[in-house]
Design a protein around this nucleic acid. Structure first.
Lengths: 168, 168
DNA sequence: ATAAACTTTCAAAATATTTTGAAAGTTTAA
DNA sequence: TTAAACTTTCAAAATATTTTGAAAGTTTAT
């Protein structure tokens, strides 16, 4: 396989994975393109490469910056802005974990904690099932939360080393 | 808060979380409804409760069965089918992990392995960046794969116990 | 102050996903 | 068989998300 073909496949695969995980396809593709690019690229180059509109490129780049996955680069004497991706994959994984935890897990935990306080008739099967399901999910969610918090703080080698020491 | 209000909130929150994770909202809501229900419910009851059409209910229930999250129950002397959810939250988490791994991670790993074999000019910055990014992502994906495989086989207490022994 | 270079916005259009519901299909009891 | 009870299908409609591109906005050099 040629490098160019490989790049296209990677961008496609990354885009698909992104969309299955609730991140829009274009955003994942722009990220993939920048991951593969040794130099920073301009909006224009990204538009051309992925055949997307200026507006789309602009919004997508802004989102990626908010996720902490790419940065702007300013070059002396130039007006254009250049964009480049964080290349350390562990840092990327942590950023994504942190962002999704904040946006998705934290609000759910808040609701679950509220729901855990609901009182009712212990003889009522509906109440008992509610309490058990909510309680169990709450426990699981808290474990996930603790693990993600640890992961976000951790070094890659330490993290996987610790996991595999146990999971041998 | 009343039990009924709590149920509605839970169904809403579960639906939202589902949609953020690439699972459709209705599917997550039906699952939530069954999780909270001490008895198995009929298609009719689910339609009424969530105000969804027969077709939608039918397809959603079928999907949930394919995910291994709910089961049909047959009652002697009755024509209707009853549906109930697996209530053990750890089992649910494992089913979801297994299913998503199979559908999403496995195909990506396949592509990454292919892309890892691409040969090129070691002096070419584009090739070097491609190789590094693809290689690093491949390593990370393999670690995630191993961890999920372990999780799918593991008992809940053992799994979290092991994690927290390390992540204290 | 002007104008060129560049970025951002946002309403409308395109696309994709989900839902509906009526019709077709299946099963069971009599 | 037949027909009632129930389930499944799927094309069309509704909804939601994403993308476009022209216009408005901003910055900078002169």
């Amino acid at each position: 396989m040629e490098l160019a073909e490989g790049k296209a496949k990677f961008i496609e695969a990354w885009g698909k994975l992104g969309s299955e995980w609730g991140i829009n396809r274009t955003m994942a593709q722009v990220h993939a393109l920048l991951l593969l690019s040794p130099e920073a690229l301009t909006t224009e180059e990204i538009m051309d490469d992925l055949k997307i509109s200026r507006g789309n490129a602009n919004m997508t780049l802004r989102d990626l910056i908010n996720w902490g996955l790419i940065e702007k680069q300013h070059r002396a004497g130039e007006r254009k802005e250049y964009f480049f991706a964080e290349k350390d994959v562990w840092t990327i994984a942590r950023q994504v974990a942190q962002e999704r935890k904040r946006r998705e897990l934290d609000p759910v935990l808040k609701v679950l904690n509220e729901l855990s306080t609901i009182k009712g008739d212990e003889k009522d099967a509906h109440y008992k099932t509610f309490k058990k399901s909510v309680g169990d999910i709450n426990k699981l969610a808290k474990n996930v939360d603790r693990t993600l918090t640890t992961m976000v703080k951790a070094e890659e080698n330490w993290f996987w080393g610790s996991i595999f020491k146990i999971f041998k």
